[in-house]
Design a protein around this nucleic acid. Structure first.
Lengths: 182, 182
DNA sequence: GCAAATCATGTCAATAGTTACATGTTATAT
DNA sequence: ATATAACATGTAACTATTGACATGATTTGC
């Protein structure tokens, strides 16, 4: 599948970037809402893309002697990225979710234990939702124009908020289902 | 993390079961909505659980000579499973989503190409939602009692439907955002 | 001045998961 | 009868991902 390959090509296609900055995108930024990779996965993949001639590298010196590697996309790399971007793949497997697994096995715990679980999940997802909504109001006061980088940022952030909303609604429905039994 | 371990222990804790039937749960049944594993991952994990004395095995002959292995939970296995079930873990990493990745990079494709993607996704998720809703109406005409196996089935199925609903709403919002620009 | 955080790049061992290979039995439909 | 699908269990090679180890430079706050 090599999805990481295309995530890296896409980021590099935005302009020259270092492996460190790519890792930051995955770990802290908007991207973390739908993809992630540790630096220990990023560096070897960059090495591979280089060997495949999809990117080039330029060594630069920051300050006195700190070395940085700036990666740039090649024509070939851009072509492969755009080809992938237009692919219409079948829906992948449903994502794994440990809390749903615990819910599936809720018959092995008491109602009060499961309720405690639900309240803890509500807290955590409410916190996450608030953080996402904060990003949204700070970054966007109207819908960015299609074709801009900002449109993509907006769309995936909106998706992340809606996903949290839906998860919260589900948790509340589970709480309701425990208590409102006829 | 060994989540597969606990998924297997939970299934075996419901009663003696074969590796084949466990694999079926992951591939075809309700479980596929939040966890999955191929038989090539299930059989070695069962072997390991056996070595760890969390389960026992009984060889039975089906018909003339077809061998089946029935796995049963041990006291130790049950204890470990329940202990895991009550753990309140921090939220795991956000699940990966290839279509969200493509959306993030939508500035590299034309509006009509992205709209085509959105319509294709709408089709696929509508189909999935319809299939889930069919399971729901076929299996449940009211909310099962908390504590029954059916409650877990109902809750995760409801969650799966809500997740599809939310995804569909997001896709429609993206469509709207392309066109309704001020 | 100096400690801590952050910048910056990498490797290695281990775990998790997929795909392909491998084999044989039993039920079902034609 | 016989082919096909489903039942049943496994291994091997490979890809993906994580966590720990390893090293050094630069900036920031006190």
């Amino acid at each position: 599948m090599r999805t990481l390959k295309y995530a890296l090509l896409g980021l590099i296609d935005r302009g020259p970037i270092t492996g460190y900055d790519i890792s930051k995108e995955f770990e802290k930024r908007i991207m973390a809402n739908f993809w992630h990779a540790k630096h220990s996965q990023v560096y070897p993949e960059l090495k591979r893309l280089l060997e495949e001639n999809l990117i080039t590298v330029e060594l630069i010196i920051q300050g006195e002697k700190m070395e940085k590697k700036l990666y740039t996309i090649t024509t070939e790399g851009h072509a492969e990225f755009v080809e992938w971007l237009l692919l219409d793949e079948p829906l992948g497997v449903t994502p794994k979710d440990v809390f749903r697994l615990r819910t599936f096995f809720s018959d092995f715990m008491s109602a009060s234990d499961y309720e405690q679980h639900l309240h803890s999940q509500l807290d955590k997802h409410n916190f996450k939702k608030a953080s996402l909504e904060n990003s949204m109001t700070k970054s966007f006061d109207n819908i960015p124009e299609y074709g801009s980088k900002e449109f993509g940022d907006y769309a995936v952030l909106l998706g992340a908020i809606m996903r949290e909303d839906s998860y919260l609604a589900w948790l509340k429905a589970c709480l309701g289902a425990i208590n409102r039994q006829d």
